[in-house]
Amino acid sequence: MRVTAQTLPGDRRSDPLTINCSLVEPILVGFVRSEVRRVGFKKAVLGLSGGIDSTLSAYIAAKALGPENVSGIRMPYSTSSVETMDHGDLVAQELGIRMQTISIAPQIDTYFTQFTDASRLRRANKMARERMTILYDQSAAQEALVIGTSNKTELLIGYGTIHGDMASALNPIGDLYKTQVRALSAYMGVPAAIIDKNPTADLWVGQTDEAELGFTYAEVDRLLARMVDERARPDELIADGFDPAFVSRIGRMIQTSHYKRKLPLIAKISNRTIDRDFRYARDWGT
């Protein structure tokens, strides 16, 4: 007799990264629509790098608000790749959204003439924050909220710049792992060239996320889904077949980057300290 192992719905053995895109899309689209309009805005602005995360955010925003109300901003530095520029154009064309190009090279170069020995990391963070200030300036100029483009994987492991690319008014993709970003992107019709390319923050020539991190998104997403969403303990993860060093490294990355996901600490002296015992929803009164 041949017994076939089946993965049944609700079966704990089923892939924890599986999402039903037909359920997820309307929730995320409704989220952007609701959270933008309830505070009196109609429009959104986002940094459109041509990578999969910002592309998916743009697709969601265009569907939520109408393409005429979404503005993509490409903010290249002199080392930014041509492919990145082309994919930004492709997305803008596909969606029919407005696309602006604002170079960050003059201000970055001016700043670093004072710090010629600045590390690659410092330069990368400075660029990310430069882009943030442009987005927030354009937010004011265009009366448009800044849409976030950070996925759950990078938010959890801290692979982003605090007050840089992690800054936004609202983030539709922050509860989706990179693997799930790929699945939803395919579902929503993002061009295959963007889905299939090697993820890069394009911070220096030839950079790729996975080479810099030393693991693939597929690997880390499987671990994170078990560790975070399913609360599997280290011994369970190791029994699952994850390398103990990998488990402890990712655990440390989550912990040491936690400050990036929180408000700055406030020294408490009163009975009502902001965020500790002065607690209101951000959507207070809207």
Partner: peptide
């Protein structure tokens, strides 16, 4: 609250 998006239905 709506959550749980792995199956056919929420």
């Amino acid at each position: 609250p709506g959550r749980g998006v792995r199956e056919e239905e929420l």
